[in-house]
Amino acid sequence: MTDARPPSGPFEDLDGHTLDELVDYLDRGRTPLDPGIEASPACRIALAGLERLRLMAGGLLEEDAALERTHPDCWMTTVLDRISLEARPGRRFPVPGLPPGTEATVTEGALRGLVRAVGDSVPGLLTGRVRIEPQEPGDRMDLDIEVSMFYGFPIEDTVAEFRRRVVEILPRQAPFTVGRLDVRVADVVELPGAGAP
């Protein structure tokens, strides 16, 4: 290939079809089968080339990334510094049972952080998203928690331990008790280099 080559290459003459047409045909998964296109050697060569290009496009970014893995990420430090200043407090739940005229609240974000910490302290489990719904008269919280389990830990026992700790620790650290407690195991993660604990 040279730069002096005119723009019209071997893919100009496609037996009356255009490259654009062939791409649309590929995008449709070559259905319905177009006998005109399929019978043309020029079209078939172009289709094969387009498919090959598409295949290569698939891994292009991963290879680009591999070629310059060692990029410093000071930009990420800046990001983390900035977002740590804007925590997500969420809703504010009034602390129940305070004398009239007194008011205090606990943020949803603080409660979520507490539940996350409790979950992460249970061997074999990682806490994911935590949803909190306060129940009347306001001292009881329904919780819906997503977790990941590490492969090799008994799911039932580990989740039971997590539930026990949440029910026990939440009222100790925050002025609420646990109402309904749903724990959903979203996925099981493999520990590197170990099949079992």
Binding site: R112, R116, D120, A186
Partner: peptide, 27 residues
């Protein structure tokens, strides 16, 4: 309150979904 220590390393093994959920919660 946020957990620290070993779970910090283990968190790196978590799937995208779990990390995104936690990040959405403010982690």
């Amino acid at each position: 309150m946020e957990s620290t220590g070993a779970s910090g390393d283990l968190l790196a093994l978590a799937g995208d979904g779990l990390l995104a959920g936690r990040a959405a919660d403010g982690d």
